[in-house]
Design a protein around this nucleic acid. Structure first.
Lengths: 146, 146
DNA sequence: TGAAATCCGACTTAAAAGGTAGGAATTAAT
DNA sequence: ATTAATTCCTACCTTTTAAGTCGGATTTCA
């Protein structure tokens, strides 16, 4: 049940952009450097993020990417679903599955629905701003230890 | 983020065994028939369920499988984790990941931990007995519609 | 003794994961 | 004007995983 690198790295991209929010565009090169990830791979991942309208780009030298919305308006759920598709444990709970009219009265389906609801509740309750706050919390804590 | 068929079919196996609880062993053939699944594939899936001690087997003709514990003591979480491994969105939240001492203060890791906790809370709160009850509820409802 | 089961291990095929590579287009700074 | 930095675009590659299948050995009830 581990997420693919798409969702995981995608969140890292968005987190870096959130830390940089309001400071102009940030290049993928810098993000890749800070997160120790392959820049060319991140290029792939940012395409859907742009298409969904979560980020915008500035081309050319000194260009890069920026969040479109404010960090407290972007949830972890939106980001992960953009890159991974719907967060469902089984296809049969997605809108329109034709095979799911079964003689077993589909009890398992009820379970998948509950699980899906649980997962989405969690990820939709966390925003990028929460992550930024976590960062400053951790930072302060670490400085206190010196 | 869709579960593999291991976890999904595995839960169906356990659900059938729960419906059959107390009535002697049930063969994979019958389970496969009722759930419209490949019997030989289910053979693979039941191995870990047996190894973990969730089911026991009776060999020979009229043999089959039975739940070891009572349906209200077996959670969906146990079953899925047995077949899918730990329900974590990232490896880095599993005990001992060595790579996770990072300069970013690992804010994303905090997020994965919260998500993992959320998922496990949901699946561990549902037992096989809940599914059996769901079955009788749905059945009654359907009969009322006639 | 035969049929119905579980058990065991190897094999197969297709898709997905996790990238790389090469180059075109755009733009700020010099 | 040129150069360097950047996004953008398309294709390709390699390894792993998913989702089974297959053949046969073993056990046991009828």
């Amino acid at each position: 049940m581990i997420l693919s690198t798409k969702g995981r790295y995608g969140l890292k991209i968005m987190y870096e952009l959130a830390l940089n929010y309001g400071k102009g565009p940030m290049s993928l090169k810098e993000i890749a450097l800070r997160q120790q990830l392959s820049e060319t791979y991140l290029e792939q991942l940012i395409v859907p993020l742009k298409k969904t309208g979560l980020v915008t780009s500035v081309r050319g030298a000194q260009g890069g990417y920026e969040l479109i919305g404010k960090p407290d308006e972007i949830t972890v759920g939106e980001i992960i679903r953009t890159l991974e598709g719907p967060l469902a444990p089984s296809e049969c709970v997605l809108d329109d599955d034709p095979e799911c009219t079964r003689a077993e009265y589909c009890v398992t389906r009820l379970i998948w629905e509950r699980i899906m609801e649980g997962i989405n509740n969690v990820v939709d309750s966390i925003t990028l701003d929460d992550m930024v706050k976590d960062y400053y919390m951790l930072k302060q804590k670490k400085e206190g230890e010196k």
